[in-house]
Design a protein around this nucleic acid. Structure first.
Lengths: 297, 297
DNA sequence: AACAATTACGGAATCCGTAAAAATT
DNA sequence: AATTTTTACGGATTCCGTAATTGTT
């Protein structure tokens, strides 16, 4: 088996193109690299370069080998982080998400969760779910997608439903629902990091002015002191918090469109033992609480 | 980066469970392995084992690491063969297939093909096409499936159509087509290595007695000296061979069922320069020849 | 003259084996 | 008594740097 220091030299040589520069960058000397590349060719039994007296030129096979070697070294590096992450995941369960709703729910009951559960506040792109789980960077990932593979399983924990908070002036008496169609051309205050919700509202409200706020502090400021509409979901309300009384200035209306509903899943590795019952309990309690107390919000 | 000899030791230790046995199998000594496993733990910064005075027990992280390391070593080994195969593919184009028809066509025009084209007679399972191409074990793979990925492309070269060769006694006068339905309950001589055709005929002729022959010599013997029906395809006929005159004992009928037709594709790496025109030419010639000379077979 | 690769030699790091010790069944 | 892991020491491999050589631009 060819040693990996040779692969590393190859990859860097391909990057810097001359042995001299490569040696300088790698804190080695030219002779070392010259020997290395020669040895690599010997061990592989394949000519990787065209050896000219003062120039070493990559042949197609050399280029192929360099790229394959780079890939291999990356995986080698992954191995080390994966082992470390596995060890960490034995001690602490890291919980990630692609959208904020489920994290809100969990944060509210944090004291009741096993104390080795860590909630990662930063959202992940949906495309990374598989990788994050396989590389053990997370043990649990909440998303609006259900991952199913030989190693990963996803289970539904609930349905997140979009609500819109409007100033009373925009709401008809006894109105208890609203649709996207009725919300076109309005100005909304919207938090930036809302995962897949962002694309959804942009698609459903193409004409609306969605004023995305990067700081949650800015959002709070604006909704407290202006009458701009903003969004909430059924996951926003705390079953154990003080009752949110109806505001005299604003009303909260659920969106009746089907697209305003997202099934929410937990994805995790099949061989990872998860306290599934606990999670189910938390989310069903949240949903029931919202359904039973709609009238107060 | 942790050296791969340590990974190799880990993998073997996981396999043989005791350092003593592992040392024996690896032609090393216990102290070497003891040191190695200790060093591995140090370099990873993770406890892989429970160190008892006379026993070294894998912890979950150790098991995880051993499995990941095995995977890594396999990929390392792949790297070497891939580089060798790439080098070989620069010189010789290896042509594989999942079914025999396209190979028959190519073999007949072998003298007209570039002399660095090598035809691999043994058939590959359809599931391996991607792997064979990516690992450069083949440069071209003919199949009834079109592979499309970021690295691989498939192009259709023609449609292979099933024909059945029947004794005259089973054919009505002026009959020029037949269907699977009419072939139930017959005894067929069938060559074993026909790739996806095998499943097809088994599915379409569940009641027929398909007498699979592993040796092509056995097939030849039986069709020459018995009146058992057997299969051919439009790819079986040589445009440059001597005209196959109609037999006085047998007749060749095409199957009219749609399922008796298979589109045939060549799959290859996008960055591999292929003489696509040549291939297209060969197959279109074969198909035209068959269409124009049906009456003679 | 400047730059790039290669060869030859000596030093340094490390990887391995032998021998011996400690602990368990 | 037989296994198994671990520690300590010495040898051998190999990996690297310095200096010098060859060849090109």
């Amino acid at each position: 088996m060819v040693d990996q220091y040779l692969l590393s030299e190859l990859v860097n040589f391909y990057h810097y193109q001359t042995l001299a520069k490569t040696a300088q960058k790698m804190c080695l000397t030219q002779p070392t690299l010259s020997r290395g590349m020669k040895k690599l060719e010997q061990e592989l039994g394949v000519k990787l370069f065209e050896h000219q007296p003062n120039r070493l030129i990559f042949k197609p096979t050399g280029i192929f080998a360099a790229k394959a070697a780079a890939n291999l070294l990356a995986q080698q590096s992954d191995f080390e982080t994966q082992v470390k992450n596995f060890e960490a995941s034995q001690k602490n369960i890291k919980i990630g998400a692609t959208l904020p709703g489920p994290l809100l729910v969990l944060k509210r009951v944090k004291k009741d969760l096993p104390h080795n559960w860590q909630i990662i506040t930063k959202l992940f792109p949906t495309s990374q779910i598989k990788e994050l789980l396989l590389k053990r960077q997370c043990s649990l990932i909440f998303a609006n997608q259900k991952i199913e593979s030989s190693e990963i399983i996803g289970k539904q924990v609930g349905v997140e439903k979009l609500l819109v908070n409007l100033p009373l002036t925009m709401v008809a008496k006894n109105q208890n629902k609203i649709s996207f169609r009725e919300l076109q051309n309005l100005n909304f205050v919207v938090f930036s990091e809302i995962g897949p919700w962002r694309k959804l509202v942009q698609a459903e409200l193409p004409k609306a002015n969605l004023m995305f706020q990067e700081k949650s502090k800015a959002v709070k400021e604006l909704i407290a002191n202006t009458s701009y509409p903003f969004f909430k979901t059924n996951f926003s309300f705390d079953p154990n918090g003080k009752k949110n009384l109806k505001s005299r200035k604003r009303r909260l209306l659920p969106l009746k469109d089907e697209k305003a509903k997202m099934p929410i899943y937990v994805n995790y590795l099949k061989n990872q033992p998860i306290n599934w019952h606990k999670i189910e309990q938390i989310f069903s309690k949240t949903e029931k609480y919202f359904e039973n107390n709609k009238q107060y919000f």
